[in-house]
């Protein structure tokens, strides 16, 4: 059993990060996917995770969205534990109720969009606000239409996902996630399933969010140029831990570690 007393019940002091991974380990059976990960994401910061497949980068987002449980360590969101909760002055694994309370601060977009196929674009966006936040239909419709307008999908609001292209579906998915007003947005390879010619329409929407909104964002992508343009920081993952991290110019322009150099040159050749 892990000694939980090494982790604070909540983060205090100035400059509390929006997200903190503290000593987080994730295993699938004997395979260690993430090994004692420490990672902070500041409020309003855009952090991009890159790395070879199998390096654990998607797992980082999935743990934060509570789609995966963790084996060791604690994840904090806005200073409060996400994966755990306080009970009699000690941290214990989070209950479903605690997870539901904490999860409301996080939104996520997926590689395969995962829109609800039996609902129109507008209904997809209204579903969360109406059902989960208990908002009136009128209010939810207003908010959803504003967001569909923001992602350039207002004209298609009454279409079902099956009638939309991949790029259009992903833009609706971004609007759907934003409709819940999360503090942290997670983008998990959101352009990987798209045809090359429509990647731009999705990256432009994300670029817009970075420029105009003070969202904290964590992104996994293979679009190196895009990551370099919009990120405040790049984390290069290798074998379940952060091999190197830094400002985009430094990491892409002057990588220090050999594995980073190898990865970046391999990506450059392929691209």
């Amino acid at each position: 059993m892990e000694d939980m007393s090494q982790y604070p019940l909540e983060l205090t002091g100035d400059n509390i990060p929006m997200v903190r991974f503290m000593n987080v380990t994730k295993r699938y059976g004997k395979l260690t996917v993430l090994d004692r990960l420490d990672l902070d994401v500041a409020t309003g910061e855009m952090v991009t995770v890159i790395g070879p497949s199998g390096s654990g980068k998607t797992t980082v987002l999935r743990m934060l969205m509570t789609l995966e449980t963790i084996n060791e360590g604690v994840i904090y969101v806005d200073g409060k534990p996400l994966t755990h909760m306080e009970k009699n002055g000690a941290l214990v694994p989070a209950s479903p109720k605690h997870l539901r309370m904490m999860r409301s601060q996080i939104g996520m977009c997926f590689q395969h969009f995962n829109l609800f196929p039996h609902m129109t674009a507008l209904e997809n966006c209204m579903e969360g606000p109406v059902q989960v936040l208990g908002m009136s239909k009128q209010e939810a419709r207003k908010r959803s239409e504003d967001l569909l307008d923001l992602v350039g999908m207002i004209e298609k609001k009454d279409q079902h996902p099956s009638r939309l292209s991949g790029g259009q579906q992903q833009r609706v998915a971004i609007a759907r996630a934003l409709a819940m007003r999360p503090k942290v947005m997670l983008f998990d390879e959101v352009t990987s399933a798209l045809d090359p010619e429509v990647i731009g329409e999705v990256t432009n929407v994300i670029r817009d969010l970075v420029d105009k909104h003070n969202l904290t964002m964590l992104m996994v992508t293979h679009q190196m140029g895009f990551a370099k343009d919009i990120s405040d920081r790049i984390c290069f993952f290798f074998d379940g831990s952060i091999e190197e991290q830094g400002a985009p110019d430094a990491l892409f322009g002057n990588p220090q570690r050999e594995r980073t150099q190898q990865f970046l040159s391999a990506v450059k050749e392929a691209g």
Binding site: F110, N114, G128, A177
Partner: peptide, 24 residues
């Protein structure tokens, strides 16, 4: 992926079943 989308929208299991999973 549909279940994961339900979790990401913070739906309860009951909401996920009645609104998303059973209709499909």
């Amino acid at each position: 992926g549909q279940w994961e989308a339900c979790t990401a929208l913070n739906m309860s299991p009951r909401q996920a079943y009645t609104r998303i999973i059973i209709p499909q």
